[in-house]
């Protein structure tokens, strides 16, 4: 990487404490991630990495052409992350856009196979993301059926919990309309309700709470606490530090596909806040 980060590397004292090979902390573990690498295959990509591309004039574009951009690129989204989680922990994951938070969750859930490294879990985890549209042409009722069955519930269990899911999601009569007619908040609430209906051992939530209003947030927090008390582990990806601080017992900061901090919510969030503020200040000075 660049000079700046290398200087950073030398100055930061906390790095010295971490010897490269550590023993796994031995409490009752529910999840163990070791040296995880995830890469995407991207077809027809010209630029690799995160963030916006550099502006180029037509001449520069012409010069850059000529076989330098292969049809398939490998994008390294996660570059070596290791951590262990215990039963009953609520772990927040923070980081700027494109830092690999959602990919990390998906890899932990076994939905994207790792390029190298291992993930061990106690039982099949359930991932809940706002992007995970089930089938937008179908009604909410159909989607509840599909989602809950996909999570491994039996048809009988789905029937029993159907009303509960609808009530929790607060979508009322909209349940009979196609999901594409839903507002993003309604869709997010329904997905949360479906995922939380299965009481998974590991529940992962990807920004879902950002779509709910205050009332729904309180309800989902109660539901998450319930799952945590049932000895489950909860992961929460969010850009809202307030949400993270109020719900989590531990925070991971992911940056550029790597884990840069892991610890108490207060400590990590404070450090992250200064980073974001510096970034904001810099963005202002550029304009």
């Amino acid at each position: 990487m660049t000079d700046i980060e290398e200087v950073d590397f030398e100055v930061d004292p906390e790095d010295l404490d971490n010897s490269p090979v550590v023993r796994v902390p031995s409490d009752e573990l529910s999840l163990l991630v070791n040296d995880l690498h995830v890469s995407y295959r991207v077809f027809g990509a010209k630029k690799v990495g995160h963030g916006p591309g550099r502006k180029q004039g037509p001449l520069a574009k012409l010069l850059r052409r000529g076989g330098r951009a292969p049809a398939i690129r490998e994008v390294k989204a996660i570059r070596g992350i290791s951590f262990a989680a215990r039963h009953g922990e609520a772990i927040g994951i923070i980081g700027v856009n494109g830092s690999g938070k959602s990919t990390l969750l998906r890899a932990i859930a076994g939905l994207i196979p790792p390029a190298s490294g291992t993930v061990h879990v106690a039982s099949n985890p359930a991932l809940l993301g706002v992007n995970a549209v089930l089938m937008k042409d179908l009604s909410g009722e159909r989607n509840i059926m599909i989602g809950a069955l996909a999570l491994g519930l039996t048809p009988k269990q789905v029937q029993e919990r159907y009303q509960e899911i609808v009530d929790f999601a607060e979508i009322g009569d909209f349940v009979n309309l196609p999901m594409k007619s839903y507002s993003s908040g309604m869709g997010g609430r329904l997905r949360f309700a479906i995922s939380a209906s299965a009481v998974p051992d590991i529940l992962m939530i990807d920004e879902a709470l950002a779509t709910g209003d205050a009332g729904f947030r309180a309800k989902s927090k109660a539901r998450m606490d319930e799952i945590r008390q049932a000895a489950g582990t909860v992961f929460l990806v969010s850009h809202s530090l307030a949400t993270i601080q109020s719900m989590c017992t531990r925070v991971l900061w992911v940056h550029d596909g790597q884990l840069v901090m892991d610890g108490e919510p207060k400590e990590v969030c404070a450090r992250y806040k200064t980073f974001v503020q510096e970034k904001k200040k810099r963005a202002k000075t550029l304009h």
Partner: peptide, 18 residues
């Protein structure tokens, strides 16, 4: 990251379980 005023990010935790 190359420009002088780049916000600081803590160095990655170089941790791998054996």
């Amino acid at each position: 990251a190359g420009s002088a005023a780049a916000p600081e990010v803590p160095a990655p935790l170089e941790r791998v379980f054996d």
